[in-house]
């Protein structure tokens, strides 16, 4: 399979005050292949949203390189940079905030459509896009607040599709939606993927949703990827203790966690909560190693 994205040693630090830095992403290595749905699971503070924004370049990493179809995106300029922008799009979590409240829906979706076409053609394309996502085109000149949450998310999807992208980052796209609406949006994602040959980076904290839609999945904890691999491997046979904790919490099965102190900040980030931890874990950061084919984990105990 063709490799679409490749991140190596990517870190992102935020400078809060003098001397105080928050590490949103810490030494991330990730590959995404064309045509797959790659899932990213994590809780708040894991860095998953930051990763979504860093990969397509709307946030710059502090360190590391990101390659799109073999090219370093930091070196792209002008037309090529514009090309990257058009090929990779993003859909946000909150449908109430991701649309400009002062723009009509048709205008918003039209912004991404090719500029060389005439206005009539552009409007025609907008109509097609809105129909594809299931929005009644009679309402295309309305404002966002006149639509429901589910409809707004569809509009955001139409906007993302307006540049004919090949890759879309979906940042918690259904977390703010009702169950029945979520079901429709998930179906829509699958349909669009088949129809338009899309590749997705699907970010969520909801394991059940991720389990349904992804092919491969990575688990993030405090800025690091702790485990990744094929969905079946990671979900049915979780290796990292954090992954097991996430899965059992989601299904409301009790799991014990430890409560240890960390004197230093070195070592494995999960050490304070880990039941299997040993002294070694508090001293060195575990490396990512492959166990079975395609299944990687960063844990000293599980190798």
């Amino acid at each position: 399979m063709e490799k679409m994205w490749s991140m190596t040693n990517v870190s992102k630090q935020y400078h809060i005050k003098a001397g105080q830095e928050i590490s949103a992403l810490d030494d991330i290595d990730l590959d995404i292949y064309k045509g797959e749905v790659f899932g990213l699971i994590g809780e708040s503070g894991s860095g998953k949203t930051t990763l979504g924004k860093v990969i397509i370049g709307i946030i710059e990493p502090t360190e590391g390189k990101i390659y799109f179809k073999g090219r370093d995106i930091a070196e792209l300029r002008g037309k090529e940079l514009l090309g990257l922008r058009r090929e990779s799009q993003i859909i946000f979590q909150n449908p109430y905030r991701s649309l400009n409240p002062r723009m009509r829906v048709a205008e918003m979706v039209m912004e991404g459509v090719k500029r060389d076409a005439g206005r009539v053609e552009q409007r025609e394309m907008v109509r097609d896009l809105l129909q594809m996502v299931g929005i009644d085109i009679e309402n295309m000149d309305n404002y966002p607040h006149q639509f429901s949450g589910g409809e707004r998310q569809r509009i955001a999807i139409a906007r993302a599709l307006s540049t004919s992208p090949s890759f879309i980052v979906c940042d918690e796209p259904t977390s703010n939606l009702d169950l029945s609406v979520q079901a429709k949006i998930l179906n829509l994602f699958m349909e669009l993927k088949d129809r338009l040959n899309l590749t997705y980076l699907f970010i969520s904290h909801n394991i059940k949703v991720v389990n349904f839609i992804v092919d491969r999945v990575a688990v993030m904890y405090k800025g690091k990827i702790v485990e990744y691999g094929k969905k079946e491997d990671v979900m049915k046979n979780p290796l990292h203790p954090y992954t097991s904790l996430l899965i059992s919490s989601s299904f409301l099965k009790k799991t014990d966690i430890a409560k240890k102190d960390t004197p230093d900040k070195k070592g494995c980030a999960f050490y304070p909560l880990c039941l299997y931890a040993e002294d070694m874990c508090a001293k060195c950061v575990p490396e990512m190693k492959e166990t079975t084919k395609g299944h990687f984990v960063a844990c000293l105990k599980r190798i």
């Binding site: 924004k53 397509i56 709307i58 940079l81 514009l82 922008r85 058009r86 990779s88 799009q89 993003i90 946000f92 909150n94 905030r97 991701s98 649309l99 400009n100 918003m108 912004e111 991404g112 955001a156 906007r159 993302a160 307006s162 540049t163």
Partner: peptide, 13 residues
């Protein structure tokens, strides 16, 4: 910092 502005940047405007 609003999301729709980020989306606009993502569109390459």
């Amino acid at each position: 910092e609003e999301e729709y502005v980020m989306a606009a940047r993502a569109l390459g405007l």
